[in-house]
Design a protein around this nucleic acid. Structure first.
Lengths: 211, 211
DNA sequence: CGAAAATATGAATCAGTTGTCATATTGAGA
DNA sequence: TCTCAATATGACAACTGATTCATATTTTCG
């Protein structure tokens, strides 16, 4: 339907004004994450969400303007959580190389533990592309900044760190999809080792190219 | 709805038995690619597809079992085309390293020229995950085989080429999404150069680690 | 040319969903 | 305890969009 021209869509209701309200809202949000994660955005009905939350359909609209809005909220929320998790896991790294390894491992582990993240985020792309782009543009900016710092410190080669950031995000994304979600591994040592080797030495046999 | 247990979905109608039929079917397939690409799978109605193809709604069901089926067909078709394109572009490469550069460039150019590919494929993931997985599993197998060959020839370091294949696919995917689709660039020299440097030297300043 | 098969048509059916609303319940503060 | 604003309820109105089907039209080929 996509906003049938002149109609519907009650815009964001105000925030809850009671402890009870806050609790209910949180339950619905949580239920939405699970339901979207399990069924996907389109197959999941408001009914499924409210049933999972243990409230009546109508209650949904006390806190959220509609299906799209709760998805947006979810994506924002997830973005914060992932970044916080990765930041924490990277914290003690000696240099950028170690940070990359830790970051990759942390991402894979996070994805294995929170598979809904992936599905909700990826599906958001087709519901509201802007929020999906924001997620990755924000992420990539932070990533590129860290690489720039490492460049300045002489820890990594000079080069276009924006390009590198997108490449590295993509690589994590696919490795996560394949090994954490599809194959459902719980040990990522060998994967991290393979990528670590790539980061350190590139692909060629000996690193004797342009130094 | 997800196949309501006991119902609907007329299974694949037979192939057209007339030149006219073949033409009509092709027109619908083409229209579906454009329509899904422009509106997305869910927002695109059968109506939109048939209108774009210049036929009546009912005609659609003469050739396709339903909306999901035409999507499947599209994904399969696209898979063949991309692989053919990349294979052709890589053909004359002297070594694996050059093949990687050419492959990345070819992928970015293909995506810029066929943006529907991306959208249809990515969205297929949430309509019929199996076909999406097949697409990438097939692709990755071929990719890993090529890397294995290069390993044997001593062109690249030994290592887990399956992991590498997924990492390389992911990296291309994200670079394509960002630069070909979102930023709509038409020149990818600098991106290919950045990644070429990564492939040759890894990230660290000098390549003097474990040789 | 004259069936018979293959195609084409589009109105009607049918299932399923979102978002609304009038009505009840709850609980915090006076 | 009483009152009122905040919440909760769930039946239902209003739509959307996929698929079907009885009915034309076109093509093939004997």
């Amino acid at each position: 339907m996509t906003t049938p021209a002149s109609a519907t869509k009650a815009s964001t209701p105000g925030a809850p004004k009671t402890a009870r309200g806050a609790r209910t809202r949180a339950r619905i949000l949580q239920a939405a994450e699970e339901t979207f994660g399990a069924l996907g955005y389109h197959r999941a009905g408001i009914t499924d969400i409210t049933r999972a939350a243990g409230v009546a359909q109508g209650t949904f609209y006390t806190y959220f303007g509609g299906k799209e809005e709760i998805l947006r909220e979810l994506v924002l929320d997830m973005g914060h959580k992932v970044r916080a998790h990765l930041a924490a896991k990277i914290l003690g790294a000696r240099d950028r190389m170690e940070a990359e390894e830790r970051g990759l491992r942390a991402f894979l582990e996070y994805l294995a533990a929170h598979p809904s993240l992936y599905r909700v985020l990826q599906e958001a792309q087709f519901v509201d592309e802007a929020i999906y782009r924001d997620y990755y543009e924000t992420f990539s900016r932070g990533y590129a900044d860290m690489l720039d710092n490492a460049s300045r410190k002489g820890e990594i080669r000079p080069g276009n760190n924006e390009h590198r950031a997108w490449a590295l995000m993509g690589l994590s994304h696919f490795l996560g999809m394949k090994y954490a979600l599809w194959d459902q591994r719980d040990n990522f040592d060998d994967i991290v080792a393979t990528l670590s080797d790539l980061f350190h030495n590139g692909l060629p046999l000996s690193g004797r190219d342009k130094p």
